[in-house]
């Protein structure tokens, strides 16, 4: 019985007098655990237009993204979205080829396209980047 009491007291003391004093740093390392990571896309790629044509199309793109697309429900099935694809294609291949590729993309942007594309992990949308 005595042995049992001594054992319990030793156990109790070992739990209480350990050198686990909580410092300021110990508390502050839990900063940001509940931080909200909300970084809306700033469309940087649309802000470095190199010529007048790109300025016009980038402007239209930004207007659409900030004032129209921001109020829309998620309707495009692709990643990157059709508007981003259009801008990237125009920046890369010029207005004529970019417009044709965009028209082609619009025709493919529907629920029946799923079987032809892989899924993009980040957004779970169909992956169709500018080649």
């Amino acid at each position: 019985m005595l042995q049992r009491i001594i054992f319990t007291i030793t156990l109790f003391l070992s739990f209480n007098f350990v050198s686990q004093a909580q410092s300021k740093a110990d508390v502050m390392k839990f900063r940001g655990v509940f931080e909200v990571h909300n970084h809306p896309d700033s469309y940087e790629y649309a802000k470095n237009a190199k010529n007048e044509v790109q300025v016009v199309f980038s402007g239209l793109f930004l207007f659409y993204k900030y004032f129209i697309s921001s109020q829309d429900r998620a309707s495009c099935v692709f990643h990157p979205s059709c508007s981003v694809y259009a801008l990237q294609k125009i920046q890369k291949n010029g207005v004529a080829e970019g417009a044709l590729a965009t028209f082609d993309r619009f025709c493919r942007c529907n629920a029946f396209s799923a079987k032809n594309y892989e899924t993009y992990q980040g957004t779970q949308l169909l992956y169709d980047p500018v080649e």
């Binding site: 300021k24 508390v27 839990f30 509940f34 931080e35 909200v36």
Partner: peptide, 24 residues
């Protein structure tokens, strides 16, 4: 939802600061 999460995060950080101030 994001705004509410942000409010909760602020309250948490305030609490954390108070606890940290009480430590050595």
């Amino acid at each position: 939802t994001q705004k509410r999460a942000s409010n909760r995060s602020k309250a948490y950080e305030e609490t954390l600061n108070l606890i940290a101030e009480s430590k050595n």
